[in-house]
Design a protein around this nucleic acid. Structure first.
Length: 679
DNA sequence: CTGGGGAGGGGGCCC
DNA sequence: TGGGCCCCCTCCCCA
């Protein structure tokens, strides 16, 4: 039977094209000659034995390096085998370890048959077959560009007198899905849901999971469903004929991929799969060769163990800094904390604290609002909960929200026990709920007006109070009731408020790590799956994020836009500038080595951060807002450092640089620091 | 051996 | 919801 081993011949053909000396040193030969040579194989059973081995390995999951998602079933296979069988599959597996097939083009059952064919050269081996089945397989095989299988199906249909062009047959890819077909194809997870199906299609019978003992990469729950849930396989991609298979995103630098943007977000646009798109009608295989120029990178992801993940997050650098916090009056410490965006001791306005106390007396404060708005230096206790705060990966994070979280846990009985069954607490109003769903519903019920009204009633005003509507309130009117942060729109505020929640709402279904934003969790999932959609045109290196690619491209362009204000050193990546700045701020003994000229850069950055503007706008903002600093009343309400800047460093950045460079002695004058650090 | 820079990768979070 | 940016950790290379 010619078709028997057809896939294997493809495999050998590819192997020979790549490795001309593979077969007894025989040079590459024309197809006919090669076939002749294979027919004359000195060990006739060699190809059969090899294929049997490969299929055996597949059924055991051994050395499988790709997962194929078809609707809600997952299949494991070997990239090489798929690539050898279909140029189309080759174009998919070359980039990703997980590929997603359009289930409207190929159903799980049909794909199982196809995969069996690829590994065995048999179609519906030993099972009763029908023209409906062949039609479905034919359609799917055409879609997947498995020419041998297409030919086989056509032959079988012609034999039955049923074949005509597939477009006119009315054959659905589903067809009659070979009920009872016994196949060796291992399905990682098969969880057939009530996904709406075309009315003319018979229901897909569940495929019994086979070989679930294969101990490599088995999801605890349906990965297919998770992929949808987590946006890794958006429904529109999964279902639309225009969507398709390749989970990768196009490299934005590829003009040829422009047409992918329709119907897909930028992030979801695909790597151009040559003939365009995976879903485009099957075309000549030759058009796919372009793909081979890309660097074939596989990204086996091993970090499935949550403990590993957590162990990989040691205490960050700045935690160690805060552990041996100098005394409050240490000016360098204050400056250092400022540069680190850590709260200064003077940050909590005494009047606000009194208000808090009043509310406490009246019992008005919710359990969550009873804390000081910001943990002041004097309220800091030994950070003894580091070992218990690791679950969310926020260990050592000195961000205000992280500080608040730690502070809550330390001081105010913010343990779950204190809320009984209502573990999910609304931060703005302090109400507890037994489930995250109820809490989310409740949070939605907080309309924007309520939020605004509430903040206007009892929110401390770290920047500018309402009586003096200043720049901060104009730009960012929505202020968090749990911390000092303010936002331009209520949606962002709601998003931010989740960072104060006791329970992070978006857990990773693979490692269990929890996130405050779905997008972060989705991104995290991509790292599990090794998806790197963004490719560098210059070197082929692939990245998980567009931003990484942008950074990377500076390596090729030589662009170094980040300049050290102290020494003039230039860097291609801002993070390396920041790292470099640490060198300026840390002496050889490891202690902070801050002079005021170092702080110029940090001042600009700080200003930009707290005004919600981009980094590069810092200087502009400093100069544009200088008139605010001319107003003593406004200065009084500004962040102490801005006040200090206005008083001591001049109003423009240029002036500040000049003054700072001439005033380094001030850095050692604790009285100066005391002036702005005291309430 | 060590410090510094380059660069890959992950998480937080605002827009 | 995804993009963009920031921050951090880490590894590697080199002087």
């Amino acid at each position: 039977m010619r078709q028997k081993g057809g896939g294997f011949q493809l495999l050998l053909s590819q192997a020979h094209s790549r490795y001309p000396l593979l077969h007894h040193g025989t040079p590459p030969q024309a197809g006919g000659q090669l076939n002749t040579m294979l027919d004359a194989m000195e060990v006739p059973s060699h190809s059969r034995q090899l294929l049997l081995q490969l299929n055996s390995q597949r059924t055991k999951g051994f050395l499988c390096d790709v997962i194929i998602v078809v609707q809600n079933a997952l299949f494991r296979a070997h990239k090489n085998i798929l690539a050898a069988s279909s140029v189309y599959l080759k174009s998919l597996v070359v980039h990703d370890n997980l590929i997603n097939l359009d289930h409207e083009m190929v159903s799980p059952s049909i794909f199982r048959i196809i995969l069996d064919f690829i590994y065995t050269g048999r179609l519906g081996d030993g099972e009763p077959t029908s023209e409906q089945l062949f039609g479905a397989v034919l359609a799917a095989a055409s879609y997947l560009q498995i020419s041998d299988l297409v030919s086989l199906c056509k032959k079988k249909l012609k034999r039955n007198g049923k074949y005509c062009h597939v477009r006119n047959t009315g054959y659905s890819p589903y067809g009659s899905l070979a009920r009872g077909l016994r196949a060796a194809t291992p399905v990682i997870q098969s969880c057939f849901t009530s996904t709406p199906r075309p009315v003319d299609l018979p229901p897909v019978e569940p495929v019994n999971p086979i070989n679930t003992h294969c101990g490599e990469l088995y999801a605890s729950v349906s990965q297919a469903n998770q992929l949808h849930q987590h946006g890794l396989c958006p429904p529109e991609r999964h279902c639309s004929p225009l969507c398709g298979l390749d989970l990768s995103k196009k490299s934005p630098n590829r003009p040829s991929a422009q047409h992918h943007s329709d119907g897909l977000s930028a992030s979801d646009s695909r790597e151009p799969t040559i003939s365009g798109r995976p879903d485009s009608p099957p075309v000549s295989a030759s058009v796919l060769t372009n793909h081979s120029s890309y660097k074939d990178q596989t990204h086996p992801y091993q970090k499935l163990d949550s403990s590993d993940q957590q162990a990989s997050h040691p205490e960050p650098f700045r935690t160690s800094v805060t552990q041996d916090t100098p005394s409050r009056t240490d000016p360098q410490e204050l400056m250092f904390r400022w540069m680190k965006h850590e709260p200064l001791g003077s940050y909590v306005d005494e009047s606000d604290r009194e208000k808090d106390l009043e509310r406490d007396d009246k019992g008005e404060n919710s359990p969550l609002s009873q804390q000081p708005r910001y943990p002041s230096i004097e309220s800091n206790e030994p950070d003894d909960d580091k070992s218990t705060s690791e679950e969310t990966g926020s260990s050592g994070d000195p961000s205000p929200s992280a500080n608040m979280e730690r502070y809550h846990c330390n001081h105010l009985g913010y343990e779950p026990e204190s809320f009984g069954d209502n573990l999910y607490v609304c931060i703005p109003c302090g109400k507890g709920f037994p489930s995250s769903e109820q809490l989310n519903a409740h949070v939605e019920a907080h309309n924007e007006e309520d939020l605004y009204h509430k903040e206007s009633m009892d929110t401390p005003v770290p920047f500018l109070d309402k009586s003096s509507q200043g720049l901060g309130d104009i730009i960012r009117p929505y202020r968090c009731s749990s911390c000092d942060k303010s936002y331009k729109d209520p949606a962002t505020l709601r998003q931010h408020e989740k960072t104060h929640w006791l329970t992070r709402p978006y857990p990773c279904s693979i490692c269990g790590k929890k996130f405050t934003q779905r997008g972060t969790m989705t991104r995290h999932m991509r790292s599990h799956l090794g998806l790197k959609p963004f490719a560098c045109d210059a070197c082929g290196m692939r990245f998980t994020r567009q931003y990484r690619l942008t950074e990377h491209m500076r390596i090729h362009s030589g662009e170094k836009p980040y300049e050290c204000q102290v020494c003039g050193g230039k860097f291609a990546q801002q993070r390396n500038l920041i790292s470099h700045m640490k060198m300026h701020t840390t002496g050889p003994d490891g202690k902070p080595k801050l002079d005021f000229s170092d702080s110029v850069y940090a001042m600009a950055k700080f200003t930009a951060d707290h005004l919600g503007l981009k980094q590069e706008k810092a200087a502009e903002i400093l100069s544009q807002t200088s008139h605010f600093l001319n107003d003593p009343k406004t200065i009084e309400s500004l962040y102490p450092l801005a006040k200090f800047t206005a008083e001591h460093l001049g109003l423009s950045q240029e002036k500040a640089v000049e003054v700072l460079s001439q005033s380094q002695h001030l850095a050692n004058d604790s009285r100066i620091i005391e002036r702005f650090s005291s309430p």
